[in-house]
């Protein structure tokens, strides 16, 4: 009976994951491996293709998913790439300005603004997913805020991994592939934003988790009982323990030949915290050095006094 309960929990979280996250790993890997036929993504590899990409995205039909229709007001209504689908699929760049005036910079500016908009929307998706974890909404409301504040960027980085390979990342719901070299060619410190995420993702992807594994792992991250300032740790740890049991069973069943996968996955949580710390410090540096820098209010809330 206990194993049956753990399997039911895994199914529930997988269904919530499919409901709230628009681009699954299965879809992303199909796009990246060229299995989507004529619908190959547009490749952005330099400033010229970045501008062409903006045109490209404006001319294409936007594949709004059924569950997204009710929230489409959040993602539509801005110009450029933002109008189609804001920026990086699970963008976490959190910036609005990338330089001086000029036609090229205007495109860059819109791109980075769109990253922020998409990040805010992704936070909403993660919040909805968190609320679907059994017991989460019964936790102290302050603790729910704390768990999201500290967990959401870690979740976004995990969600970005399936969209990445060693050469670049999918953005705009898989319609565009932006190369790693192009992102590295941006001026400092913008060029430093994504490289640590690529390094992490390439290693993380070797674990070959599927979407149902990912759903459980994301819930484990959210239910971390050691976040600073939590008022009532015990019920959070109890919830996490149940999800951990479910994840361990899930991995044994779906990856029987992958030794120590559960332990390897838990170790990734340590790496994640360092990536988030470095990311937040980079954003704080940007706020000081970029005159026009304006953080989205939701991202400000999350990053203020984070690390």
């Amino acid at each position: 009976p206990e194993a049956a309960d753990l399997r039911a929990l895994a199914r529930h979280l997988y269904e919530a994951y499919l409901k709230y996250f628009p681009l699954t790993k299965a879809k992303a890997r199909a796009i990246l491996s060229g299995k989507t036929g004529d619908n190959a993504p547009f490749v952005i590899h330099d400033m010229k293709s970045l501008m062409e990409g903006e045109q490209f995205i404006n001319c294409r039909q936007i594949p709004i998913l059924e569950h997204q229709q009710q929230t489409s007001a959040l993602t539509l209504g801005h110009g450029g790439i933002t109008a189609a689908h804001p920026g990086s699929e699970y963008g976490i760049m959190g910036m609005t300005s990338i330089g001086d005036q000029g036609p090229t910079d205007a495109v860059e500016l819109r791109f980075f603004q769109s990253c922020q908009s998409r990040s805010a929307e992704a936070v909403r998706e993660v919040t909805e997913f968190a609320k679907s974890i059994p017991g989460f909404i019964n936790l102290d409301l302050n603790d729910q805020v704390t768990l999201l504040k500290y967990g959401v960027i870690e979740v976004l980085i995990i969600m970005m991994s399936p969209l990445m390979n060693k050469d670049g990342t999918l953005i705009s719901y898989g319609q565009i592939f932006m190369t790693r070299e192009f992102l590295k060619s941006l001026r400092k410190p913008f060029c430093q934003m994504m490289e640590p995420k690529f390094e992490f993702s390439v290693k993380f992807n070797t674990l070959e988790l599927d979407d149902s594994d990912m759903a459980l792992f994301l819930a484990v991250i959210i239910l971390s009982g050691d976040r600073p300032g939590l008022l009532n740790v015990k019920p959070i740890e109890q919830l996490q323990e149940t999800v951990l049991h479910s994840l361990e069973l899930q991995l044994k069943l779906s990856h029987p030949d992958s030794l120590q996968l559960f332990a390897k996955l838990l170790q990734k949580m340590t790496d994640l915290r360092q990536i988030v710390t470095d990311h937040v410090h980079l954003i704080q540096l940007l706020k000081k050095t970029e005159v026009d820098m304006c953080l989205h209010p939701l991202l400000q809330e999350i990053m203020k006094d984070l690390y």
Binding site: L74, S117, V123, R124, L148, K149, L298, E301, I302
Partner: peptide, 21 residues
């Protein structure tokens, strides 16, 4: 804490209805 995180708080309290982010 929830006072300092009004938007997060709002996201947690609301259902799936659109929130003006």
């Amino acid at each position: 804490l929830k006072e300092k995180h009004k938007i997060l708080h709002q996201l947690l309290q609301n259902s799936t209805s659109p929130v003006d982010l």
